[in-house]
Design a protein around this nucleic acid. Structure first.
Length: 569
DNA sequence: TAGGTCACG
DNA sequence: ACGTACGTGACCTAG
């Protein structure tokens, strides 16, 4: 949002491209400069000319990592909501191979065009800017950037069509791109003073815990160092070791919870870690990232996952705490500006709904159709009781199994998760698959498809190749099978949420243009809008999201309206 | 930079 | 006999 425009490059046929540097001095805004210095044009002139491209519906603009360029152009005066079509070669390559390690123009040019590129670092010395390099060098670097993007598109267009990914590209991923840009640039407001207060509170709690730990242990040490902590727990205090890590014995939550029954230190460590995490990752970090209006801007990464989900970075706004009361205080610091409200709309159990749809399992579909608590319905089915007879413990078990199925569960993990024996876990699993035999069939056929074709697909044809699916190594093969099961479920959910974003954005732009999408958290959309529009905006969001796809089980969306995120009424 | 840990869906 | 649930990103330590 603060990047300046040095110049831009264009290409419309292979091997011929142009770099156009801009006059950098802010004072030189004369219209005549174009004639006086034909090799340069002013920034205003450049934006004016580029707008002709971006607002021509007959034009297709091909870019690499277009969201970035688009945002820079907007920060420098380009109007929003272009009418051209944007095609992004970075996204195209991601759709073709979503678990590639890099989608940089440099790496792709090397891999697909077999050309060595001029690297940015090789022409711009450390600490210098692009505008410091000689024009001749800038021309070389800038113009090949456009040329390679053009050439990559020629290849990707064919490949997308060949693999039936073209409509996913044009109808889903490309329309999402400018929406993400708008969300990022809008940002979300945080109430700094609340976090500042919470910071003091947390710091003193942490300090107190720290001295209590030192007292119990008899000396000071770095609690955050797993190495030193192992020494203290397993040698000095002689506690039993559990799981191993690559470098020693684990001190993670599960292990410490176990140890807490025999020793007072582990519980304090757990509390210390919990509060330190909140303080360093959120409470102290977020306020320093606000702009002059107190808003925070994340970067949504469209190529961030192998399943089709988005990821969020610098800062990650998709992992803001919510699960316990301490953490929720942080979420509540995210608020709407004056005279506005936040609306959160989230899909209920979207991944299980998709599992029901993909497997067409009669009992799982009925579990959804019969009521609104699918875990309870599952418990009733696998324990052979009526829904009214389901005890909380039974529901908890069913819920864990439901998640387990989505992740490709093992009896071992289920047993550990539920704190029961492996035999017992195995019998729950058997009973689950006896009830939901369609789910078992879905799992088997998905793995078979992966073995035969080498990839799995989502409802919309999004693809993920699974190289290890035919591995001779047993645990590698098992891990590949879990990916094969999970990807169509998680990925289809990602497809649906992206479709919903497009629909919600279109509806709101037309009916309530002041309402803005701010965040997407995998199954949840957050919108900010004027107070007096909130009820209607919420209705539009719910309706749009529920009607975006027709599955064999209806999608349900719950909406909440409030001044702060995580605190609704 | 890798490893451990932990925040989220 | 073997390893142990899917997908992320940030912070801290240690080398």
């Amino acid at each position: 949002m603060t990047a300046k425009l040095a110049g831009f490059s264009l290409c419309y046929q292979k091997g011929i491209s142009y770099y156009i540097p801009l006059i950098t001095s802010e004072s030189s805004n004369s219209e005549n400069l174009f004639e006086e210095a034909p090799a340069y044009i002013s920034k205003n002139k450049a934006i004016f000319l580029l707008e002709k491209l971006f607002f021509n519906p007959d034009v297709i603009v091909i870019m690499h990592n277009g969201k970035f360029d688009y945002e820079v152009l907007i920060s420098n005066g380009l109007k929003e909501n272009p009418t051209c079509t944007i095609y992004d070669t970075m996204i195209a390559s991601w759709l073709l191979h979503p678990d590639r390690s890099s989608f940089s123009l440099e790496k792709l040019t090397e891999a697909k065009l077999f050309i060595e590129t001029i690297s940015f670092d090789s022409i711009v010395p450390k600490g210098k800017n692009f505008t410091d390099v000689p024009l001749e060098t800038a021309v070389k670097y800038g113009s090949e950037d456009a040329d390679f993007t053009w050439q990559l598109w020629q290849i990707f267009e064919e490949e997308l069509k060949k693999n039936n990914l073209f409509s996913l590209f044009t109808d889903l991923e490309m329309p999402i791109l400018p929406i993400l840009a708008q969300m990022e640039m809008t940002g979300i407001h945080i109430e700094k003073s609340e976090l500042a207060e919470y910071s003091k509170d947390l710091s003193s709690q942490i300090e107190k815990l720290q001295s209590e730990i030192y007292d119990l242990v008899g000396h000071e040490f770095n609690i955050a160092s797993p190495k030193q902590l192992q020494e203290v727990l397993f040698i000095e205090r002689g506690l039993e070791t559990g799981k191993k890590t690559k470098t020693g014995y684990s001190t993670d939550t599960a292990v410490l919870e176990e140890l807490a029954e025999k020793d007072p230190v582990p519980a304090k460590i757990l509390e210390f870690r919990k509060l330190s995490k909140l303080l360093s990752t959120y409470v102290d970090a977020l306020p320093s990232l606000t702009d002059k209006n107190g808003r925070i801007h994340t970067n949504f990464i469209q190529t961030g996952t192998a399943t089709g989900r988005l990821s969020s970075r610098d800062p990650n706004l998709q992992n803001i705490p919510v699960r316990d009361e301490n953490g929720r205080k942080i979420r509540k610091a995210f608020d709407a500006e004056k005279n506005k409200l936040l609306i959160s709309a989230d899909y209920s159990q979207i991944e299980l709904v998709i599992l029901a749809h993909l497997s067409k399992d009669k009992n799982l579909c009925n579990a959804f159709l019969s009521g609104n608590d699918v875990h309870k319905a599952t418990a009733a089915m696998i324990f052979g009781v009526s829904p009214e007879e389901v005890q909380p413990e039974m529901r908890r078990t069913a819920k864990t199994i439901n998640f387990g199925v989505i992740y490709g569960m093992s009896a071992f993990r289920l047993a550990r998760q539920l704190g029961i024996s492996r035999t017992m876990a195995k019998s729950f699993i058997d009973s689950y698959f006896a009830t939901y035999s369609g789910v078992q069939d879905f799992i088997n056929s998905t793995i078979e498809q992966a073995e035969k074709e080498g990839f799995v697909e989502t409802i919309n044809g999004r693809r993920r190749y699974i190289k290890a699916i035919n591995s001779a190594n047993k645990s590698e093969k098992a891990a590949a099978e879990r990916i094969a099961i999970n990807t169509p479920i998680q990925g289809s959910a990602a497809d649906i949420v992206k479709k919903a974003m497009i629909k919600v954005h279109a509806e709101l732009s037309e009916k309530f243009p002041e309402a803005k999408l701010l965040l997407q958290v995998h199954d949840e959309l957050i919108v900010e809008c004027p107070e007096n529009q909130a009820e209607e905006v919420a209705k539009i969001m719910k309706t749009s999201m529920e009607s975006v796809t027709q599955l064999s089980v209806p999608l349900k969306v719950s909406v909440e309206i409030g001044k702060r995120w995580g605190e609704f009424h």
